[in-house]
Design a binder for these strands. Structure first.
Lengths: 98, 98
DNA sequence: ATTTTTGTTCGTGTTTTTACGAATAATAAT
DNA sequence: ATTATTATTCGTAAAAACACGAACAAAAAT
C-alpha cells in the first residue's frame, strides 16, 4: 500500500532531501562540499570517526537523494554537490515560508 | 560511545531539524502551520490518511525537534510553529551555502 | 455521575537506518 | 604478473522509525 499518494511531488522531494541531511555525518559532508567544491572519499575517511564502509553508505545515501554526485578518477572518486538538486532543495525549503 | 562529539553544535542541530522534516507527513504539517498559523491535531486526523496514534507520533517528533509547540485548549491541543527554532533552522540551512 | 470528546501511551510487528569488519572489485603502479 | 591503492558490497547485528488498533487519561458537556 502506497501512502505517498496524496502528498505533492514537492512535499515528497523536500522530505527526501531533508532525510538525506538528517545525519551529522551527512551535514558535515555537504558543508564541506559546499565550501571546497569537491573532495575524495579518502579525505573524508581521515577526518571522520567512522569506518570507510559506513562512510560509503552515507555517500550513497546523499547520492541516491541526488544531493551529491561522484566522478571516477581511478582509483579515486571525486565527489561534488549536485548543483541542480541542491538549488531545488534550497528552493523547496525556502518556499515553505513564503 | 558517543560519535556526536566531533560535530559542531550547528551540525547536530541542522541534522536534527532536517531529520524532523524527513517525512512527507511532517513536511505537510509544517507547511500547513506556516500557512495558517495554527491547527488542532483533530484537523490533521481528518486530512491525513493515517491513524491518530501515528499522527501523534509525528507531532511528537516535530515537537521534540523543537519545530512546533502545542498549547492546551482542553480537550484539544493547538499546535503552532516554534518560530524561534524555525528561524534557527532557516538560518542554519541557508548559512550552509554562504 | 456519566458520557463524550480529544489525544497520548501501550503493545506489537515490519521496515529502515546505522555501524562494523571482511571480502571483493577495479584500476594504477611496480 | 604482482602488488598496492581506493572504494564498494556483503554479511551481520543493534537500534530507530513507522504504522496500527486497543487501552487509557483528562477535561468538558450533559
Amino acid at each position: 500500500m502506497n501512502r505517498d499518494l496524496g502528498y505533492t511531488e514537492n512535499q515528497l522531494k523536500l522530505a527526501r532531501f531533508s532525510k538525506a541531511l538528517g545525519h551529522p555525518v551527512r551535514v558535515f559532508i555537504i558543508e564541506l562540499l559546499l565550501k571546497q567544491a569537491c573532495c575524495y572519499s579518502g579525505d573524508l575517511t581521515e577526518i571522520l570517526p567512522i569506518a570507510k564502509s559506513t562512510l560509503s553508505q552515507h555517500l550513497k545515501e546523499l547520492k541516491d537523494a541526488g544531493l551529491i554526485q561522484g566522478e571516477i578518477e581511478s582509483p579515486k572518486i571525486k565527489y561534488c554537490i549536485n548543483r541542480d538538486n541542491w538549488n531545488l532543495a534550497r528552493k523547496l525549503f525556502n518556499n515553505l515560508y513564503k
